[in-house]
């Protein structure tokens, strides 16, 4: 099977600093990858490049065998979706957030689909009218993640999405993400510093000083 995403000699530098050097990485469709490494090693930068939130300064990035540059950025980001650490929730209510993916596609929100996604994420179906300010950390992160997967992307990039959550929350978010991977062949790439998550990772990748090593 052909790889879903391929990075060839990808580098990123700012005017005064080299952040990433010669990244070569092949991501098969349906993979469940974990990325770790010291703070400041360039992990987040790498995922942001893959999400087209910033542009690499050298090398090639292929998605479904075509260069990133050949895609419309908006269409691309709907296929390669990035979820932030400590996400900002939009508007006032949970519904404001979960309607957003429909609004940007000029579609009427599919209430049944939203409720199903809430339930699968372990949230109450009647949560839609709840004010975002009243949510717990675990609930906020789930609501943010549901925004990313209401329209399933091909790749979900997760930037320390479980940081700061308790073990029960972590475990349930992992189960949910694993089901998405198994049931929908959703490729997931997750950055983490958590030793338990690193331990449980099926495929682990290290980023150290801007370089990538795939653990054997």
């Amino acid at each position: 099977m052909s790889p879903l995403m391929q990075l060839r000699h990808v580098g990123y530098r700012t005017p005064d600093k080299v952040i990433l050097t010669d990244i070569n990485w092949t991501i098969p469709a349906g993979a469940e990858l974990t990325v770790t490494g010291p703070s400041g090693s360039g992990k987040s930068t790498l995922l942001r490049i893959m999400a087209s939130m910033i542009s690499k300064t050298s090398g090639d990035l292929l998605f479904a065998e075509k260069p990133l540059e050949s895609y419309d950025p908006i269409a691309y980001r709907r296929q390669v979706s990035y979820c932030f650490q400590q996400p900002t929730l939009f508007g006032e209510t949970v519904a404001d957030n979960l309607n957003f993916p429909y609004q940007i596609r000029r579609q009427t929100p599919d209430h049944d689909h939203i409720v199903e996604a809430l339930t699968k994420a372990g949230l109450a179906a009647d949560m839609l009218d709840q004010a975002v300010d009243d949510l717990s950390g675990g609930e906020r992160q789930r609501v943010a993640l549901i925004r990313n997967i209401l329209f399933l992307p091909r790749i979900l990039l997760l930037d320390e999405v479980t940081a700061g959550l308790d073990d029960a929350n972590k475990a349930s978010i992992h189960r949910w993400l694993h089901h998405l991977n198994v049931d929908h062949q959703l490729t997931t790439i997750m950055i983490t510093h958590d030793s338990a998550e690193i331990h449980a990772a099926p495929h682990l990748v290290h980023v150290t000083q801007g370089r990538l090593e795939v653990a054997q």
């Binding site: 939130m53 980001r77 979706s81 932030f84 939009f90 993916p101 940007i104 943010a144 925004r147």
Partner: peptide
């Protein structure tokens, strides 16, 4: 001030106006 919120909307595939 709202940089992160704008980035998140973009990451979800919103166009710049949205």
């Amino acid at each position: 001030d709202q940089r992160q919120g704008v980035l998140e909307r973009l990451a979800l595939g919103a166009n710049p106006l949205d």
